[in-house]
Design a protein around this nucleic acid. Structure first.
Length: 239
DNA sequence: AGGTCTGTTCAGCT
DNA sequence: TAGCTGAACAGACC
């Protein structure tokens, strides 16, 4: 049972005022947990509101850890048995909210079926990377995972989304599922093969070519110009 | 010391 | 409508 709620950070808890989440949750228990993409939320008992948590760019959920220095714990639930669940987030881009609005959130990127993926992702004139990052198209792909996925699929981030054919979209979906699985197993998207060494400007881990760097979809983007060609390439080369 | 970068999202504009 | 830009935050890094 929730005995206390630390909701004093008015930026992370916006648009709720101090004490608002607290009064809605004290005395209730969490009954179910959910996640879709980067959104997570909890149901509460007795018809209480849901509690939504988002990690922003650098937040984490910590359980039963000593409170963070400098109050980096931006929100916390204190349970009657002494347990404490905190949203630890230096940057304050995380979020705690009652009854989160999930109506503009697409299906989970690693769960969406083949046909829905083709329909949702393979349209529009924006670059494919921007399409992947759009949480209303599919939920859960951030900047690093997008780069890793496109690299594995051998697709340029700059390709127009609507220009991808069915084979390319299926390849993209397979790469996304694999990249997500690997990131989960290894503890984060920063463990991706393309991502490690990105800062140091290391070459393509697969072919050794110098990686390209540019802003695509409004985000810093790395890709291998050799393995992720701008124009679709006929794989069947004349012998 | 100061400038730049960052695992995200949202409002506001064309 | 779809797509792009910049702002919100604050620490890490050079």
């Amino acid at each position: 049972m929730i005995e206390d709620v630390e909701d004093g950070d008015t930026y992370v808890c916006r648009p709720h005022g101090p004490g608002e989440i607290r009064s809605a949750l004290v005395g209730r228990s969490l009954t179910r947990t959910h996640r879709r993409g980067k959104a997570m939320w909890f149901e509460t008992d007795d018809g209480g509101p849901d509690l939504g948590l988002h990690l922003g760019m650098a937040g984490r959920i910590v359980f039963d850890q000593p409170p963070a220095p400098r109050s980096w714990d931006r929100f916390a639930l204190v349970f009657a048995d002494g347990g404490r669940l905190a949203l630890r987030d230096k940057r304050r881009l995380g979020r705690a909210v009652l009854d989160p609005d999930l109506s503009n959130l697409g299906p989970d990127a690693a769960m969406v079926g083949r046909d829905a993926f083709r329909r949702r992702v393979g349209r529009g004139t924006a670059p494919i990377k921007a399409r992947l990052l759009d949480q209303s198209v599919v939920a859960g792909v951030g900047n690093l995972l997008a780069d890793e996925t496109l690299w594995r699929a051998g697709l340029s981030p700059r390709r127009e989304a609507g220009s991808l054919d069915t084979d390319e979209l299926d390849r993209l979906r397979r790469a996304l599922r694999a990249a997500t699985r690997d990131a989960t197993a290894k503890g984060g998207v920063h463990t991706g093969r393309l991502i490690v060494g990105r800062k140091r400007r290391e070459p393509c881990p697969s072919c050794g070519a110098a990686l390209e760097r540019a802003t695509v979809g409004g985000r810093t983007t790395f890709w291998c110009p050799r393995e992720q060609p701008e124009a679709p390439v006929t794989r069947r080369q004349a012998a």
